[in-house]
Design a protein around this nucleic acid. Structure first.
Lengths: 117, 117
DNA sequence: CAGTATCCCAAATGATACTG
DNA sequence: CAGTATCATTTGGGATACTG
């Protein structure tokens, strides 16, 4: 089910809606490095409860940014990867990252999350 | 009063926190064109109640992105403008705008807000 | 003109426990 | 392993009315 973006008619708001979810930027950032299983993502986003992680991933999927692949095996195996649309967010994420990193350096805030360039 | 960004240690999250408020991107976008009075901003963000508009502007101010100038006259006159830090967000906003605009075109969503390039 | 002050509602997120 | 389900709570935001 597509999310309601019909109400949003501003390009910046549309863009922000896509990446602005609580853990979405972090998830997208790590998926830029390649395909990952649910458990791996969980490790990179330790504060997210299973429920939230799933919810964010489902939204990313329905927005067409992320592809979810289920392997019919036991125990379950699910892989997540970026779609072409998701990949196209790379310059945006990098622009935000660079601004944020500069800001943090100027304000002597330690950069100590799992994001790295 | 500085907002709590101590808890955020990821550059992308810090950046998103700055521009992610409900009407912040729209406000910042218009201030890129120059100084504006409260009433002018209100016109560009018609959906925002006075309360919300003030709240967003105050946060932008405390984040150091926007400068608020009060003229001691009657009736009151208040001007808002971007700080150097606010101006430095321009490439970020443009990156998001461009991505959003492309997305909307590809999905045949009309761009009909007050944002223009 | 440029805000404040209350009250209230809905959405978002968290905690915890459970399952195919 | 990769989720669901349920409940509780916090937060954000809107409506409305008022003010220096």
């Amino acid at each position: 089910m597509k999310r309601k973006i019909e109400e949003l008619e501003c390009p910046v708001d549309v863009g922000l809606k896509m990446i602005g979810g609580k853990y979405k930027a972090l998830i997208l950032w790590h998926l830029l490095s390649g395909t990952m299983r649910n458990g791996q993502i969980q490790k990179f986003v330790p504060h997210a409860t299973p429920k939230m992680l799933t919810q964010q991933l489902r939204e990313l999927e329905s927005d067409g940014l992320v592809c979810r692949t289920v392997y019919p095996v036991v125990p379950p195996k699910v892989e997540y990867s970026l779609t072409a649309l998701g990949e196209s967010l790379k310059p945006v994420l990098i622009a935000i990252y660079d601004w944020g990193a500069t800001y943090m350096q100027d304000n002597e805030i330690d950069i100590c999350c799992s994001m790295e360039r």
